[in-house]
């Protein structure tokens, strides 16, 4: 499986287009992560806890995208686009949406 943000893969032409697929991951940091991030907001600097949460959300979205592609018989997802949004009251939940085109290379 090849997952890429590019529209073409050098040396591997697309044999079949299998459709646009997307996957989303919504993740909430827990109370303690919120508290520590809130303190970081007061004092400044990087928030490692939220960075880890964001990384996890991105991994989950890409994983789901890859599984959907595989189920369609694809061995590649081209033009992958990742969108990051905050949702929920006060923006405490993070949403990552991964979109791409499933293909057979």
């Amino acid at each position: 499986m090849l997952i890429t943000t590019t529209n073409v893969v050098e040396g591997r032409p697309v044999q079949e287009y299998l459709g646009v697929i997307n996957a989303q991951s919504i993740i909430g940091a827990n109370i303690f992560k919120d508290i520590f991030a809130g303190l970081r907001d007061v004092f400044g600097g990087r928030s490692k806890t939220y960075e880890r949460v964001l990384e996890q959300a991105k991994e989950d979205a890409l994983r789901e995208l890859a599984e959907k592609a595989q189920a369609l018989g694809a061995n590649g997802v081209l033009g992958v686009d990742l969108d990051f949004e905050t949702i929920g009251s006060g923006g405490s939940m993070l949403m990552v949406i991964a979109t791409g085109t499933a293909v057979r290379l």
Binding site: M1, R63, A66, E67, A69, Q70, A71, G73, A74, N75, G76
Partner: peptide, 15 residues
């Protein structure tokens, strides 16, 4: 046969 492989934490998926 040619397959696509996804390797996760506790499993792997073959297409």
């Amino acid at each position: 046969i040619t397959a696509s492989v996804l390797l996760f934490d506790r499993s792997l998926s073959i297409g």
